[in-house]
Amino acid sequence: MKRFLTQYRALLWQALQVEWSNSERWMSPLLFSTTMILLFAFAFGKVDVAFLPQLYIAATYLTASFSLQIAFSRVLEPDTQDRVFDQLRTYPISPSAWFLSKYTIVILLGALILLPTLFLSNLFLNNEGPVSLLNSSVLIVAVLMLLSLGAIGVLLSTMMLRSNAKQILYPLLYFPLTVPVLLSAVESSRMILVDGKDLSYLMSSWLGLLVIFGIMYFTLCLLLFGELVKPE
């Protein structure tokens, strides 16, 4: 256990250092978010206030989903340089510590992208709307979405790295796999903001699905990660 914690801390600290010294890595997904919000604003044009909440929620989550995908797909980029990833594989590292450190960094970076995206989208798209996504219940939904997406993001990233697959494959697999997450997040937020439902009501439907998805994929990815870094 002590060994696990030491390794987890070392891996996390290293990842934080690399991200800190290379702010482009979280800045560019955020800039991408801003660009998408801008494009959505152009595409929507003048919208009837009655339709605004629905469109606003959809556009926000779509933007977040796209930028998070970019951040996830790049999470192992620092490790590909100078064959660091292979060197790590020759070290006696606990695969769970390794996976958890990557998961933690993905969640931290994701929050750094997700929360500003919600804020920016509220500012630009929803400037006269009757509802606001900056609401504690919706923030919980958004964070749950991030937690569910993180695990599968790390695993797909590792898979792409180990298989030298083409870049385009990442979104091709990521988006269909995460359909339930996007649906849950959008529908939960809509029910909170438009229908005035609360979190406990949603737990038995959309939010429950989101949580089940998150727990299932977290466990599955934790187990599979070890398989992906083993010698072949």
Binding site: L177, V179, L183
Partner: peptide, 15 residues
């Protein structure tokens, strides 16, 4: 991953 996801996708799309 794909095979396990299919029932969840089905459920979510149905809702």
């Amino acid at each position: 991953i794909i095979a396990i996801d299919i029932p969840i996708i089905y459920k979510s799309v149905e809702w």
